[in-house]
Amino acid sequence: MSAAFDGVELEMHSHLCVFHRGRAERDDLLIPFLSDGLRRGEACQYFAVAEEEGDAKRRLGDLGSQLREGRYQRGDVLDGDAILAELDEWSQTEGTTCRVAGDMGWVGRSPRRREQLDALFRYEVNAGLWVNRRQVYALCFYDLDVFDGDVIVPMVKTHPQIWMTGVLVDNPYHQQP
């Protein structure tokens, strides 16, 4: 049985860019996605921003203990390759369908440096490749109240599916390496 997001069925290897407004809308979308996966016995990992560490576990209640929490920020510039390597090992170890979600708010508000944006772009493109290789559903949450055009336009380019204002649309022209 495939996963669902906001009432829409997802295909395996889905890699969604979710443009939401604020924390409440994010949680309304995120928590049902994770709890559904945990109930099915799937491995779930969520990358929270530092100030919200543990929030998702609490919101998931009894299921929260099964959730794995990851951290994106490991330095000034994103080390996407290291993160993806860990994710790959984790998905292999779990040996089951995996759900990964990340709040990209850690990137921070404008102005951002060029190398930060380039690293983010590379990470998302490579994440798309990883998702295609493993039994994974991946959601990338971008808050429209936080991010401006310098992040929004490139992130649209890197995701094959975009969710915004309650609509999930395909992006057949997303960037592939």
């Binding site: 929004i152 649209v156 992006n171 997303h174 960037q175």
Partner: peptide, 25 residues
């Protein structure tokens, strides 16, 4: 995903995906 998108060259994909980004913007 729509059939045929893969037929586009890199320039066209980049231009179209950027236009899509502008739409989201």
């Amino acid at each position: 995903m729509a059939v045929g998108a893969g037929d586009l060259d890199g320039w066209a994909r980049a231009q179209l995906s950027t236009l899509y980004g502008l739409f989201v913007l």
